[in-house]
Nucleic acid binder design. Structure first.
Length: 286
DNA sequence: CGGAGTGTTAGTCG
DNA sequence: CCGACTAACACTCC
């Protein structure tokens, strides 16, 4: 599911709703989806919500955290006591708003004012973990800085790209190289930078490295501005998901004309992932 | 109806 | 260490 912009959007939407609330109950409907001791959570307050990479960090008044990874199909949805308005986001599914709890609800956090946070996750890859600050830091031990972090500059990026001969798309999606770039934004950034996804990483010229870095920051920031992407084959409640899908460049546009040169968008498989690009704009010159 | 594909990533194996 | 592949799981599409 959610890539960095979607997770950031969820953090921003939930922050004003959930920060300051006191946990009254935590219900785990699928054991695999929650790791940690439930009892110690009761009566703790949520004091902050932040994001790093694609992980949400709910800081608790105990000093510990609830860390949440939505993986492919996670959703985090908040509902006021008895209200119908729902706040949150994540992977779109046909039933995500129709009923709470729903068929794929795995964890329910109830606050002392009876508002609730629902963790839905169809495929059960995602998780919520109660972690100490040390355990949370350990989680990021192999995670590079976020793509939008100031520390990711030309010097940093060039050094990382130069040390591998893997395909450039696989490199920019590797969280040990730079964090937060998933399939949608990797495809779009390469198109914006006019670089073929199968280009050998270490073969990029100075100008290409700079263009790719700029493009990655640009598409991720566009994603955040548009509150993430909601790509689904069905119609659902407008205004709840994000809007990046309307301005995406190549992702899931196989056969559609390139927005730059009108060449039909191609799809290949690269490292097991669907990869979209324009053969007109992105010429392979390894 | 069987098999492939899915916005992720950790683990394993060569 | 590096890189390629697979599994974790549930559902939709062809």
């Amino acid at each position: 599911m959610p890539e960095l912009p979607e997770v950031e959007t969820i953090a921003r939407r939930l922050r004003p709703k959930v920060v300051g609330k006191k946990i009254a109950n935590v219900q785990v409907l699928r054991n695999k989806s929650f790791q940690g001791d439930l009892d110690v959570l009761l009566r703790l307050n949520i004091v902050d919500i932040s994001r790093r990479s694609k992980i949400l960090q709910l800081k608790l008044s105990s000093g510990n955290y609830l860390a949440i990874h939505l993986k492919m199909t996670g959703q985090l949805l908040y509902r006021e006591n008895g209200g119908s308005a729902i706040v949150g986001g994540g992977h779109p599914t046909a039933d995500w708003l129709s009923q709470l709890p729903g068929r794929h609800t795995r964890v329910i956090v109830t606050f002392s004012d009876s508002s609730q946070l629902f963790f839905n996750d169809m495929r059960v890859f995602g998780w919520i973990r109660h972690m100490t600050p040390q355990e949370l830091a350990q989680e990021f031990i192999h995670t590079a800085p976020d793509i939008i972090d100031e520390s990711v500059d030309y010097q940093y990026f060039q050094t990382r790209l130069a040390c591998t001969n893997r395909a450039i798309k696989q490199v920019i999606m590797d969280n040990a190289m730079v964090a937060g770039v998933g399939n949608i934004y990797a495809c779009d950034a390469l198109h914006l930078a006019k670089i073929h996804p199968q280009r050998i990483s270490a073969s990029l010229t100075e100008a290409e490295v700079q263009a790719l870095l700029d493009s990655m920051k640009t598409v991720i920031n566009l994603g955040i501005e548009h509150e993430g992407a909601t790509i689904a084959h069905f119609k659902h409640s407008d205004g709840f998901g994000g809007g990046y899908q309307h301005i995406r460049r190549v992702y899931a546009r196989e056969g559609e004309p390139c927005m730059v040169c009108r060449t039909p968008i191609s799809k290949i498989k690269l490292g097991g992932r669907g990869t979209y690009f324009c053969e007109g704009c992105q010429v392979l010159n390894n």
